[in-house]
Computed example of a mutant assay.
Amino acid sequence: MSVHDEMASVQRCLDDLLRSVGRLEKQLGSGGLEMRRVRADTNHLRESVALLRESAAGPAALPKRPDLVTISDTPYDPSLWVDTDDEGLGARDRRAP
């Protein structure tokens, strides 16, 4: 079977599970902790399958890589660094202890 066929099969099974959980909820009520957990787990599984389906769709579904920015090799203007301290060395007019 192809990936598409497998995903369709998983989706059919998940739809059956959702219907079964809905019927159980009608019979048992939705207020119990166990039923709320089953409902939450079912919803989580549905979201996970949706994410898996998106990733299996191929490279068209992947986000496009941003364009690269070129950084020039020319030195920076020294006047940009006049009012700064040399990190870790202290200020120019002071001596280290």
Results as ranks from 00 to 15, higher is better:
residue 1 M to C: 07
residue 1 M to I: 12
residue 2 S to N: 15
residue 2 S to Y: 00
residue 4 H to Y: 03
residue 5 D to L: 11
residue 6 E to H: 07
residue 7 M to V: 14
residue 7 M to W: 00
residue 9 S to G: 05
residue 10 V to P: 00
residue 11 Q to H: 10
residue 11 Q to D: 08
residue 12 R to M: 04
residue 13 C to M: 07
residue 14 L to D: 01
residue 14 L to R: 07
residue 15 D to Y: 03
residue 15 D to A: 11
residue 17 L to N: 06
residue 17 L to R: 11
residue 17 L to Q: 13
residue 19 R to C: 01
residue 19 R to N: 06
residue 20 S to D: 02
residue 20 S to V: 10
residue 21 V to E: 02
residue 24 L to I: 07
residue 25 E to A: 13
residue 27 Q to S: 14
residue 27 Q to N: 10
residue 29 G to W: 14
residue 29 G to L: 06
residue 29 G to A: 08
residue 30 S to T: 15
residue 30 S to M: 06
residue 31 G to Q: 15
residue 31 G to N: 15
residue 32 G to A: 08
residue 32 G to Y: 03
residue 32 G to E: 13
residue 32 G to R: 15
residue 34 E to N: 10
residue 34 E to H: 11
residue 34 E to R: 12
residue 35 M to V: 14
residue 35 M to H: 05
residue 35 M to I: 14
residue 35 M to N: 05
residue 36 R to V: 05
residue 37 R to T: 15
residue 38 V to Y: 01
residue 39 R to N: 12
residue 39 R to A: 03
residue 39 R to W: 00
residue 40 A to W: 05
residue 41 D to M: 06
residue 42 T to Y: 01
residue 42 T to M: 04
residue 43 N to P: 00
residue 45 L to W: 00
residue 45 L to K: 02
residue 45 L to I: 09
residue 46 R to N: 10
residue 47 E to P: 00
residue 47 E to L: 09
residue 47 E to I: 04
residue 48 S to R: 15
residue 50 A to F: 08
residue 50 A to M: 07
residue 51 L to K: 15
residue 52 L to R: 12
residue 53 R to Y: 04
residue 53 R to A: 06
residue 53 R to C: 03
residue 54 E to H: 12
residue 55 S to W: 10
residue 55 S to R: 15
residue 55 S to C: 11
residue 55 S to P: 00
residue 56 A to Y: 14
residue 57 A to C: 02
residue 59 P to N: 11
residue 60 A to Y: 01
residue 61 A to N: 13
residue 61 A to P: 07
residue 62 L to V: 02
residue 62 L to F: 09
residue 63 P to T: 07
residue 65 R to N: 05
residue 66 P to Y: 03
residue 66 P to H: 05
residue 67 D to L: 07
residue 67 D to P: 14
residue 67 D to R: 11
residue 69 V to W: 04
residue 69 V to L: 11
residue 71 I to W: 06
residue 72 S to N: 10
residue 73 D to R: 14
residue 73 D to N: 11
residue 73 D to E: 12
residue 74 T to W: 10
residue 75 P to Y: 08
residue 76 Y to R: 13
residue 78 P to T: 05
residue 80 L to G: 00
residue 80 L to R: 15
residue 81 W to V: 06
residue 81 W to Q: 02
residue 83 D to L: 09
residue 83 D to W: 11
residue 83 D to G: 05
residue 84 T to E: 14
residue 84 T to P: 00
residue 87 E to D: 06
residue 87 E to F: 14
residue 87 E to S: 02
residue 88 G to L: 07
residue 89 L to Q: 08
residue 89 L to G: 00
residue 91 A to T: 13
residue 91 A to P: 04
residue 91 A to R: 14
residue 91 A to M: 09
residue 91 A to H: 13
residue 92 R to A: 09
residue 93 D to V: 09
residue 93 D to H: 15
residue 93 D to S: 10
residue 95 R to Q: 08
residue 95 R to A: 03
residue 96 A to F: 09
residue 96 A to L: 11
residue 97 P to L: 06
residue 97 P to M: 01
